[in-house]
Structures are given as structure tokens and as C-alpha cells.
């Protein structure tokens, strides 16, 4: 029961943009340095994020990426689903007719776990995570001085 590297790194990259972009474009190398993720890998992740419409890019010296929406409008669930596909705890087995026990497990365990998972990640926005990030990293105080 694991979220893939793509999902984990993609979420951290989006979070970095939410905390540090401030309306400006942020270069991949800045994100890579802060998040300790390789630029190569970030490029792949950002290509998916751009296709999904979460980020826009500008080329050139001042170029980089920015969010297309306010962090408070982006749910963590939508980011994860864009990177991971449907969030489900078991793969669909297309083995034809299901036994009673399998039907029961599907509706009483797996689907409820799926609902629970999606509910949690849909209830949290990128802004919520950004607030946590600022708090744990002591960025609240600095923001006041600017």
C-alpha cells in the first residue's frame, strides 16, 4: 500500500511552488535544490503536472513554473490522482464472475478503504499543506518581516 515516487515527489514539488512562488515563476533548479530531488526527475513530474493543468511554464532566463490556480483551490487528491491514476487499494481483477466472498470484500472492505483514502486527500488543499510547511519550517515569522 504505497504511493509511488512520482506521486510523492510531485506533491512536494507542488507544495514548494505553493510556498515559494509568490506569483513568480520558480525555476526547476531552485525546487530541486530545496527539495533535494534531481532536476531530471522533476522534469518528468512537471510534464505530467503541466498536462494535468496544474502548472504553467515560461521559458527563458526568468522562466520556470507557476501554479495555474490558488493553492486553496487545489486539492491534494486531484494532484495525486493526476500523477498516480485512480487511488485504489486493490487492482481490479477482471477474472470474470466474482465469488460471494470477493463481492463481499469488494463492497465491505476495499471500496470503503478507497472512499476513505479519497475522502482524506480530497479534504486537504495545497494551501493546508503550505501552512503546515511554513509552520514546521519556521517560515511564518519570516513572512511577517517582509
Amino acid at each position: 500500500m504505497k504511493i509511488s515516487t512520482k506521486g510523492r515527489y510531485g506533491l512536494r514539488a507542488m507544495l514548494d511552488l505553493a510556498v515559494f512562488s509568490d506569483g513568480e515563476h520558480v525555476s526547476l533548479s531552485c525546487i530541486a535544490e530545496r527539495q533535494r530531488i534531481s532536476v531530471n526527475y522533476l522534469e518528468q513530474v512537471f510534464s505530467s503536472l503541466r498536462k494535468a493543468g496544474f502548472v504553467k511554464s515560461i521559458k527563458g532566463a526568468q522562466g520556470g513554473y507557476a501554479l495555474t490556480e490558488e493553492p486553496s483551490e487545489i486539492s491534494v487528491g486531484s494532484i495525486l490522482r493526476a500523477l498516480e491514476g485512480e487511488l485504489a487499494v486493490v487492482d481490479k481483477r477482471d477474472s470474470g464472475r466474482k465469488s460471494l466472498i470477493q463481492l463481499c470484500l469488494n463492497e465491505f472492505v476495499w471500496e470503503r478503504m478507497n472512499d476513505c483514502l479519497n475522502e482524506v486527500v480530497d479534504s486537504i488543499t495545497l494551501e493546508d499543506l503550505a501552512c503546515d510547511y511554513r509552520r514546521i519550517n519556521g517560515l511564518d515569522a519570516i513572512m511577517y518581516h517582509i
Binding site: R12, L15, M113, L117, V120, V121, I124, L129, I136, N137
Partner: peptide
């Protein structure tokens, strides 16, 4: 980066809810 990772808080929340279910 464990201590300063905000994503970790999210994953902990997910685990807690799944565990209690």
C-alpha cells in the same frame, strides 16, 4: 528532511484514517 516535511503530516493523516476504518 523528515522533521520539516509537511507531506509527512498528510500521509500520517491518511494512515490514521485507514487504520481506524
Amino acid at each position: 528532511r523528515y522533521k520539516m516535511c509537511a507531506a509527512r503530516l498528510l500521509w500520517e493523516k491518511v494512515k490514521k484514517r485507514m487504520d481506524s476504518l
